[in-house]
Design a protein around this nucleic acid. Structure first.
Length: 553
RNA sequence: GCCCGCUUAGCUCAAUGGAUAGAGCGCUUGACUUCGGAUCAAGAGGUUGCGAGUUCGAGUCUUGCAGCGGGCACCA
């Protein structure tokens, strides 16, 4: 379906036809200069060395020999380049296919039902989400949508840390508030902790009378459940959903960390030192005294000298849970860049447990920093994700975050975000969608009995073909965004398509003969087909980034 | 100190090693008595942080330097 892939295949075949045995990457991509057509390839330059011929001759021969399926494009050799221009007839046919095919255009089977878990956000459920958390949530959710669209079998998971140090500290903090005490050192101080204490008094009858050791676990479970509900609601407002909320405690109930430790011990990956149990893939290194030495940056404590396991022990079990128990072929995790130092250890752990580390894919996204002086935790002002969504709206928030590649740091300026929320580029795209919808209604009113099928050969105006051309690009955008796991490519595409749509519409303002709705029912019908194709594709693309496609604004 | 990421127009950001580096915002100037002006058209604005290297070709790859962010726990 993706025309770029068809052209590339054809070009490779042509390369072989002129005597190339081992065809390198020919770098077929979009032409930047319109004079060069729609796609360009530097095939002649790439093949010159191997063939020992001048690039321009090679390009010329390729253009002569190449057979392009469906007459999708015409080749032209310029210098060492082979350029392609999408043909008018093919573009017209595409409009019809997209218009009648519904909203699935661009979907592909590159996933082949591969079973993948996408785990994202997974922050300790010990407080409300703040502005920075939104980025991981939106990135992970959009990635999952893309992977689903390309036929991967996706499960979205939130890993709930319900029994680690932070969780216990959370329980202790609620306990303290329940008894009117200040929270413990490095405990949780927010007002919501006191609210949780009050809630627990109402809902856990007699809780305040229980001794500490009995009360704290109950309070912890209660408070975490409440926070998980709150997190679920917060991300739900952003159109983010999960299939599974997987508690850390379940790992231990299933004996998975224990099993992982056993396996690592058998593999010689564990070492006792100073009363603690360490994981270290570099165990085979020896120092001069014959003592085994663990390379410092690779090693990690699994069981503390106190006998308590660390989060790393849970993570080992979590890997088994997913690869061994639940049989995911790959696991994609979205992490904030502040955890990047942990990547090598997790990869090493995957390998030590006997799995290909490639099966663990870690997507890092840079942090969202608050502009200094605007707000401060110490000053008691905490900008929550909920507050941002309240004031800007889900669509604008999602678009704002997704317009940035994961590896740029965002300097978040709340005031600026609020003052510019009406200028968010998301409205440009949504307006294009609403506009098309409206035009289609108008067409139906003026011509109540239009033909079932359109004569798309009537779509000959350059601004009409430009819309069709954008449609042609959509499958490759999906493919690239999926393969590179870069959802930000989608909103950039949406903007390009919306631009083509607005221009197409405006041609009718310049000259009434170019409107969609004209006296000629056949011409109206053909343009209506283009509107539908563009609208479906806009909607599909917006869906993939979790943004609504309104019919009126 | 060591490790990771970033540095592109005034600002926020795009750009598979390919031809003339693109958008949005802001700025200047234009465009509707008729399909929605949250729109469209035109213009100004660049030594891609600095230097070296690889290559027919570098914003993109390698390397040195500088600046910014993050990380280097028996925290997560």
């Amino acid at each position: 379906m993706a025309v770029r892939a068809d052209l590339e295949t054809a070009l490779r075949a042509a390369s072989k036809a002129i005597g190339v045995t081992d065809v390198p990457d020919l770098e077929l991509g979009r032409a930047k200069n319109p004079d060069h057509g729609d796609y360009a390839s530097s095939a002649g330059l790439k093949l010159a060395r191997g063939l020992r011929q001048p690039p321009n001759q090679i390009a010329a021969r390729l253009a002569e020999v190449i057979e392009i399926p469906d007459g999708a494009a015409t080749p032209q050799a310029i210098g060492g380049y082979v350029n392609f221009r999408l043909s008018e007839a093919w573009l017209q046919g595409l409009v019809e296919r997209v218009a009648t095919g519904g909203p699935g255009y661009g979907a592909s089977d590159i996933g082949r039902r591969e079973r993948i878990q996408v785990e994202f956000l997974s922050v300790n459920p010990t407080g409300p989400l703040h502005i920075g958390h939104g980025r991981g949530a939106i990135l992970g959710d959009s990635l999952a949508r893309l992977l689903e669209f390309t036929n991967h079998d996706i499960e979205r998971e939130y890993y709930v840390n319900d029994q680690n140090t932070q969780a216990r500290m959370f329980g202790e903090s609620v306990y303290a508030r329940l008894h009117g005490d200040p929270p413990p050192e490095r405990g949780y101080t927010g007002e919501y902790v006191s609210e949780l204490a009050e809630m627990s008094r109402r809902e856990l009858t007699g809780i305040e009378k229980l001794p500490h050791d009995e009360a704290e676990p109950k309070l912890r479970a209660f408070a975490i459940a409440a926070m998980v509900d709150r997190i679920r609601a917060s991300v739900g407002r952003l159109n983010v959903r999960y299939d599974e909320w997987f508690p850390e405690s379940q790992l231990w109930a299933e004996g998975l960390p224990q099993l992982a430790i056993e396996r690592l011990r058998e593999g010689g990956y564990l070492k006792e030192r100073e009363g603690a149990l360490w994981f270290g893939p570099a165990l085979e290194e020896e120092d001069g005294l014959g003592e085994q030495v663990i390379a410092e940056d690779e090693s990690r404590v699994v069981i503390r000298s106190t006998g308590e396991p660390t989060y790393f022990a849970s993570d080992l079990g979590y890997l088994l849970s997913r690869f061994e128990r639940r049989h995911f072929n790959r696991v994609v995790e979205v992490w904030g860049a502040d955890h990047h130092g942990y990547v090598p250890r997790m990869k090493a752990a995957v390998a030590a447990l006997g799995y290909d580390p490639e099966r663990l894919v870690i997507i890092l996204n840079q942090l969202v920093n608050l502009k200094e002086g605007k707000m401060s935790k110490r000053a008691g002002r905490f900008v929550t994700l909920d507050e941002l969504v309240d004031r800007v709206g889900s669509d604008a928030v999602r678009y704002f975050y997704l317009l940035r590649s994961p590896d740029t740091t965002i300097e978040f300026d709340l005031e600026l975000a609020l003052s510019q929320s009406n200028e968010n580029p998301v409205y440009y795209a949504q307006y294009a969608h609403a506009r098309l919808f409206n035009v289609e209604l108008t067409a139906a009113e003026k011509h109540p009995r239009l033909r079932e099928t359109a004569d798309v050969s009537l779509l000959t105006q350059p601004w009409e073909l430009d819309v069709a051309r954008q449609l042609a690009f959509w499958p490759e955008v999906v493919e690239d965004a999926t393969r590179l796991m870069e959802p930000h490519r989608v909103p950039y595409y949406v903007h390009d398509l919306a631009t083509a749509v607005h221009r197409f519409y405006h041609a009718g303002n310049e000259d009434g003969a170019h409107r969609v709705v004209v006296d000629d029912p056949l011409l109206t019908r053909a343009r209506l087909e283009l509107c539908r194709a563009a609208r479906h594709t806009l909607k599909t693309a917006l869906d993939l980034i979790g943004v609504t496609a309104p019919e009126r604004m």
